[in-house]
Design a protein around this nucleic acid. Structure first.
Length: 365
RNA sequence: UGGGCUGUAGCCAAGCGGUAAGGCACCAGACUUUGACUCUGGCAUUCCGAUGGUCCGAAUCCAUCCAGCCCAA
């Protein structure tokens, strides 16, 4: 495995990833995906992960490292695999995670395919995760990154064994700080690029406006109501809200109010106290098992039901229809359909899926 | 036009003579490869419905007026 294609977003992480592999003597090239054009999204500025500026930054880093740089056009795939499902999710009243979808259907498969075409043995990314082949069970294990603050295994639960077999994660054992310092030392132009990003194809962060204007998602204004059905005010349309949300409601009360339910049939958003968001169970579908085979009976795991939330102990109960019923030891806040749920055993990613339903019988509506 | 109550920032609301709590909303940051949550900071530089008065000193006491609500007629 000598020839490696590094997926480079134009950020500091993938830049350092390339740097490290270069230092290790791999025969390297960089690849940046072109996922949308300005026409698709209106304006495009430097805040997004694959804007023209970012492509240029990736190119500059490659030049600095003395390696080839390719740009692959995956606009059509991205539109079908990420943007449209994103709109569909919101139409259903869910809160989709486009980053997960991108990793699932675009990024890895896209770069792997191009790598194969150009005769590269493997690909690499700048994700903070670790992988290793477990000889005993004959499988690749996907593990959390060493830097707990930056671990990105949550967004990679959909990787498959063939993908893991051909993907390197050079940053898995590093901390963000070390990565920044390294970029600084080697004068990479991306060393100080900002960390934060919104949804990459929504340049100004106004995802609701994007859904409405560009994707034609219809979302009529309606009523905010209390759990008892009392009208509290007007909302701007379902797509503006997600479970557990507090800000931007514009409803003043004697206490904090949260979105506790989205009622698509009546086009109402139910506002109430935070305790109404607590649930112990949820159903997960679109499953992918990474480091283990699909379990046939109930197993213990820690489950992350949201990015940047610590994994919580739970039982995983396989269901007849192939889904998994997650039963947390303790109630969890705002389990939200459309978001990813990822199962862990310590640092190992067992698998994960999409939260489908969390208002099961016997629990609060 | 008999009686009672209320009137403090966008909303709710403390204060009951000593120089304007707090919550919500909002705004700005932090955090963050999703949406959120969370955290930090800012939010009546002036007078608390209006006008007079008492007092060293009032949003707090008194008077009148205005507005709204309620109970009687």
């Amino acid at each position: 495995m000598n020839k490696v294609m590094v997926a480079m977003s134009g950020g500091v992480d993938s830049s350092v990833s390339a740097l490290l592999l270069k230092q290790q003597g791999f025969d390297l090239c960089g690849a940046t995906l072109s996922l949308y054009s300005n026409n698709d999204i209106g304006l495009c500025d430097t805040k997004t992960c694959c804007s023209l500026d970012d492509v240029e930054d990736a190119r500059r880093v490659c030049a600095r490292l003395g390696i080839d740089h390719f740009v692959f056009n995956l606009k059509e795939q991205f539109k079908q695999g990420v943007i449209e499902p994103f709109a569909e999710g919101y139409r259903r009243g869910e809160t989709p995670n486009p980053c997960v979808e991108c990793n699932r259907s675009i990024k890895f498969s896209g770069v792997l395919a191009r790598a194969r075409q150009l005769d590269y043995d493997a690909i690499a990314t700048g994700h903070y995760v670790q992988s290793k082949y477990d000889v005993a069970v004959g499988r690749w294990l996907l593990k959390k990154g060493r830097d707990p603050a930056k671990d990105q295994s949550y967004v990679l639960y959909m990787l498959t064994q063939p993908m893991l077999a051909r993907t390197l994660f050079p940053l898995g054992g590093l901390t963000k700080r070390e990565v920044r310092e390294m970029a600084e030392e080697h004068g990479l132009v991306t060393a100080r690029k900002s960390e934060s990003q919104d949804i990459c194809f929504v340049p100004d962060g106004d995802y609701a406006g994007f859904l409405a204007k560009t994707l034609g998602v219809v979302s009529e204004p309606g009523c905010f109501v209390s759990p008892q059905g009392e009208v509290l005010g007007r909302h701007e349309g379902m797509i503006h809200y997600t479970l557990g949300q507090r800000r931007g409601l514009g409803i003043s009360a004697d206490r904090r109010l949260f979105v506790v339910k989205k009622n698509m049939e009546s086009n109402t958003v139910v506002l109430g106290d935070e305790v109404l968001l607590m649930r112990r169970r949820m159903t997960i579908d679109r499953l992918n098992w990474v480091s283990v085979a699909a379990p046939q009976s109930s197993i213990r795991a820690e489950v992350k039901s949201r990015y940047r939330q610590s994994a919580q102990p739970a039982w995983l109960h396989p269901q007849e229809d192939g889904s998994i019923l997650v039963e947390f030891d303790a109630p969890q806040r705002a389990l939200t359909p459309g978001q990813a749920a990822v199962f862990y055993a310590q640092d190992v990613v067992l698998g994960g899926g999409t939260i489908r339903d969390c208002t099961l019988e016997g629990e609060r509506p």
